[in-house]
Design a protein around this nucleic acid. Structure first.
Length: 563
RNA sequence: UGGGAAGUAGCCAAGCGGUUAAGGCACUGGUUUUUGAUACCGGCAUUCGAAGGUUCGAGUCCUUCCUUCCCAGCCA
C-alpha cells in the first residue's frame, strides 16, 4: 500500500487505508463503482470521478464496477451507454466482463419494497406532485403527514401491485418510505421510492411501468454489488442519511458507505449538460464531439491525450472544497505529455515566399528531420529543400523591432534542419505588400551548423514551395472568453469567444504530414500541438485540429512592449 | 431565520499542538538550446476567513462572528 507517486494521501485514500488496516473491508478487497446515468455524454468533470473510482481500485488491488444508473427511462438511451463505455476505455480503464445496470436489480428492488410495505415502512400515496410539495414543508418549516400515510398495509400492498400492473396513470400514486415528515433534512421527509412511468426502457423495454428512485436504488445497488466505498460528489451529502436508511433495511447484508468529494470545475469551461445541449442544438458548435466541447469526445478529437487528463486530475487532487481549477493547469498537463510523444513536423500557417537566389534552380535536397528531440528512439523523416520556400509571415520583418531576432534584411537565421540564410532584398506587389523575400544561403551551413561555430539567434521552420502539401488547419481556442461564462451579463452566450475557431483553409505542411492519422500526436514546430481530425480529414483533404499552442514568451514580450 | 458542508498565495493543495507554513500551476528573473518550445537554476504566504480564548508553544484545541456552496423532482 505504499504511496508510489510520493504524493500525500487524499482524504478518501486515508479512509480506505484506515479501513483496510482495521480489517473493515471484506477480504481486504475494496470495491468502488462509477455510476453514470446514461442520459448524456461524459465530460471532463466525469474524468475526475472515473479516475477516483477506477484509480482507487487499481491502487488498492480492488475492483471498480461500471454501473449504468438507468432508473429513469424517460431520459436514457442506448447511444449514451455506448458512448460512456467508449470514453472510459479511451481513458485506459476497464471494468472487466460484467457491466452492471441498476435495472438488473428491478426484481430485487421490487421485492424489498413489498417487504417494506408489509413491515409498515412504506406506503402508497395518492398525493399529486403539487400536493406532495405542499405537504413536504419548506427548508425552515416541518412538513406534515400525507393523509395516506396510515393506509392499511393490505391496501398498500394491493395498490402497489396494481401500480406495477399498470392499472393507474402516471402520477396517480407513488410508493413512499415512512420516515419523518418533520426531519430537518428534506430528503428524509418520506422520500418517494417508486413512481409510475410509461416509457420504453433501453434494457427492460416495457416490462415495467413503475421505476425506483435514486435514493432507493443507489444504496441497494451498492449493497448488492458489495461496494465498499461509494464515492460521489458533494451535492449528495444531504442524501447520506437516505443512503444509510436504505442500506439499513432489514435483510440487506452488506453495508457500504458513501463519501463525497468536490466536483471538478475549470474556469472558461461550462459543464452544464443543459447549456452544452443548447450550444449543440443551436449550432454554436458542430456537435457533442466538437473539439471545443468539454466532453470527452470533444477533447479526444481535439487531440488531448488520456494520460494528460489523468495527470491533470491527479494534480488537482481530491478534497471537499468547492474549487475552480485554472484552465492553464490543464494546458500545462497536455503540453507536458505531448512534448514527450508528439511527432515534430513543419507546417507554415501564414506563408511568406522565400527565394534563395544562390541556390540552384530545380535542385532538391532531402534533410533528416528528427521526429522528436525528446525521444531519440522516435527516429526521423525526410524533408525536401528547394530554392523557393515558405516561412511564416511573422518570421520576417522588413524593419525589425527591438529584440527581434528572426529574418530581416541583412540578418542571418537558420532554417530548421537545413541551412543558414540571410535576407537580401524584398520583392513587393503593386499594393506594397511583400511578394517574396530574396535571400542567400551559406552552403557551408548544411544541416544547420557551420564549422566556424558562429551563432544565429533565430531558427525558422519552413516548407518547400514545390513539395509542400495543402491542409486545412483548424485553430481552436477556448469556447468562452470569460473565466466564468455568463457571470457578467447573466447570459453565457455573451461570453462566447468569437475566435474559438479560426480556419486556415490552405496551410502548407511538409509531405510527411500526409501520413498523420487521427490519434497520432503531432507538434507543428513553433506552432503548437495538432492532431488530424477524426471526422473530416482524408487523404484528399487533410484537416488538422490544434490541440493547444506552445508556450509563447515572444508574444508575451510583444504585448509587454505594446506591439 | 431549518439542515448539511467548506474557508491555507492569483488557482489547486499538503499540513493531524513543537525548528524558517510541503508541492504543482500561474507569474517572474536568469542559464542552456537547431522550436523565442523543452530542460535547468532562482524568486514568489512573518501568515492560515475575523476576533477573542486555552497553552511554555496554535494553521492545528475552544468560543463567537463572517463569507461561500448544497438541499424543498413522482431527476440523478
Amino acid at each position: 500500500m505504499e504511496n508510489k507517486e510520493d504524493r500525500p494521501l487524499n482524504f478518501i485514500e486515508k479512509i480506505i487505508e484506515d479501513d483496510l488496516k482495521e480489517g473493515r473491508v471484506p477480504d481486504n478487497k475494496i470495491v468502488t463503482r462509477f455510476p453514470p446515468e446514461p442520459n448524456g455524454y461524459l465530460h471532463i468533470g466525469h474524468i475526475k470521478a472515473i479516475c477516483i473510482n477506477f484509480g482507487l481500485a487499481e491502487k488498492y488491488g480492488g475492483t471498480c464496477h461500471l454501473r449504468l444508473d438507468d432508473t429513469n427511462p424517460a431520459k436514457e438511451e442506448q447511444e449514451y451507454i455506448d458512448s460512456i463505455k467508449d470514453c472510459i476505455h479511451w481513458l485506459g480503464f476497464d471494468w472487466g466482463e460484467k457491466t452492471y445496470y441498476a435495472s438488473d436489480y428491478y426484481d430485487q428492488l421490487f421485492d424489498i419494497a413489498v417487504r417494506l410495505i408489509k413491515e409498515g415502512k412504506a406506503y402508497v400515496d395518492s398525493l399529486s406532485p403539487e400536493e406532495m410539495k405542499e405537504y413536504r414543508g419548506t427548508l425552515t418549516e416541518a412538513g406534515k403527514n400525507s393523509p395516506d400515510r396510515d393506509r392499511p398495509i393490505e391496501e398498500n400492498l394491493d395498490l402497489f401491485m396494481r401500480m406495477k400492473n399498470g392499472e393507474f396513470p402516471e402520477g396517480a400514486y407513488t410508493l413512499r418510505a415512512k420516515i419523518d415528515m418533520a426531519s430537518p433534512n428534506i430528503n428524509m421527509r418520506d422520500p418517494a421510492l417508486y413512481r409510475i412511468k410509461y416509457a420504453e426502457h433501453p434494457r427492460t423495454g416495457r416490462k415495467w411501468c413503475i421505476y425506483p428512485m435514486y435514493d432507493y436504488t443507489h444504496p441497494i445497488s451498492d449493497a448488492i454489488e458489495g461496494i465498499t466505498h461509494s464515492i460521489c460528489t458533494l451535492e449528495f451529502e444531504d442524501h447520506r442519511p437516505a443512503y444509510d436508511w436504505a442500506t439499513g433495511i432489514d435483510g440487506i447484508e452488506h453495508t457500504p458507505h458513501q463519501y463525497e468529494f468536490a466536483r471538478l470545475n475549470i474556469n472558461y469551461l461550462l459543464m452544464s449538460k443543459r447549456k452544452l445541449l443548447y450550444l449543440v442544438n443551436n449550432n454554436y458548435v458542430t456537435g457533442w464531439d466538437d473539439p471545443r466541447m468539454p466532453t470527452i469526445a470533444g477533447i479526444r478529437r481535439r487531440g488531448y491525450s488520456p494520460e494528460s487528463m489523468k495527470d491533470f486530475v491527479q494534480r488537482v487532487g481530491v478534497a471537499k472544497v468547492e474549487s475552480v481549477v485554472d484552465y492553464s493547469l490543464m494546458e500545462f498537463c497536455v503540453r507536458e505529455d505531448l512534448n514527450k510523444r508528439a511527432k515534430r513536423l513543419m507546417a507554415v500557417l501564414d506563408p511568406l515566399k522565400i527565394i534563395i537566389d544562390n541556390y540552384p534552380e530545380g535542385q532538391v535536397e532531402y534533410f533528416d528531420a528528427e521526429n522528436n528531440p525528446e525521444d531519440p528512439s522516435a527516429g526521423s523523416h525526410k524533408v525536401a529543400f528547394t530554392r523557393e520556400l515558405y516561412i511564416e509571415k511573422e518570421d520576417f520583418m522588413e524593419v525589425p523591432v527591438k529584440g527581434y531576432h528572426r529574418l530581416y534584411p541583412g540578418n542571418e537565421i537558420r532554417l530548421k534542419h537545413a541551412y543558414y540564410i540571410t535576407a537580401v532584398s524584398v520583392e513587393k506587389n503593386e499594393d506594397g505588400s511583400i511578394k517574396a523575400v530574396h535571400c542567400t544561403y551559406d552552403p557551408a551551413s548544411k544541416g544547420g551548423t557551420t564549422a566556424d561555430g558562429r551563432k544565429v539567434k533565430g531558427t525558422s521552420h519552413w516548407v518547400s514551395a514545390v513539395h509542400s502539401v495543402k491542409a486545412e488547419v483548424r485553430q481552436y481556442d477556448k469556447l468562452f472568453k470569460a473565466e466564468n461564462p455568463g457571470a457578467a451579463t447573466g447570459n453565457y452566450l455573451d461570453d462566447l469567444n468569437p475566435e474559438s475557431l479560426i480556419v486556415i483553409p490552405e496551410a502548407l505542411v511538409e509531405e510527411e504530414a500526409r501520413t498523420a492519422k487521427a490519434g497520432e500526436y503531432l507538434q507543428f514546430i513553433r506552432n503548437g500541438y495538432y492532431m488530424a481530425d477524426s471526422r473530416d480529414s482524408s487523404p484528399e483533404h487533410i484537416v488538422f485540429n490544434r490541440t493547444v499552442t506552445l508556450k509563447d514568451s515572444w508574444s508575451k514580450m510583444k504585448t509587454k512592449m505594446g506591439l
